[in-house]
């Protein structure tokens, strides 16, 4: 069963056709599908739906590359990306790791995923010149964590 309905898919597809500029990657850290087998300590209720949603979104544009990694097998990449929980994904142009999401971007959080893809792909996020100036002048790294619940 699809997560995105036809109308959502069309809206997303049109938006991407107009606003994606260059290739953009979604790297999902998850676990290998255990085929319904329940292994204590390995429960991950949202891993499969997160993967499906990200695949469906990535299929709406040829500019989106989707990569799935297994947190237990791809340990080197998980360490490089500082990922220790699943499901967790990064949106990037190359090997940068600073646009991050933990959990499933569903419901009211779905636009966050779309905006992240558009912003990273264009490299020109819709922020004011004043904010760009402030960010260019940053002398140290800034970590911003936003805790949300989808409705």
């Amino acid at each position: 069963m699809q997560i995105l309905d036809d109308s959502d898919r069309e809206i997303v597809k049109t938006r991407f056709e107009n606003e994606l500029v260059s290739e953009v990657n979604i790297t999902l850290f998850t676990q290998t599908d255990l085929g319904g087998l329940i292994v204590p300590g390995r429960e991950c209720e949202t891993c499969a739906p997160t993967e499906q949603l990200l695949r469906e979104v990535s299929e709406t544009s040829e500019l989106i590359n989707f990569k799935k990694l297994d947190i237990r097998n791809d340990t080197e990449e998980a360490a490089r990306c500082n990922v220790s929980r699943i499901p967790s994904f990064l949106v990037s142009k190359g090997d940068e790791t600073n646009v991050r999401y933990l959990g499933i971007p569903a419901g009211t959080e779905f636009p966050v995923l779309i905006e992240a893809l558009v912003n990273v792909s264009s490299g020109e996020p819709k922020i004011s010149e004043e904010t760009k100036g402030f960010l260019e002048d940053l002398e140290e790294n800034v970590s911003i964590k936003t805790f949300v619940t989808p409705n």
Binding site: R85, R100, N119
Partner: peptide, 22 residues
């Protein structure tokens, strides 16, 4: 919005966390 800032500069690390899952 934090993601937009992070898309502009790697000096910003922006992470959204779905708290019910974690």
């Amino acid at each position: 919005m934090a993601h937009a800032m992070a898309a502009f500069t790697q000096k910003v690390v922006a992470e959204v966390i779905e708290v019910q899952e974690f």
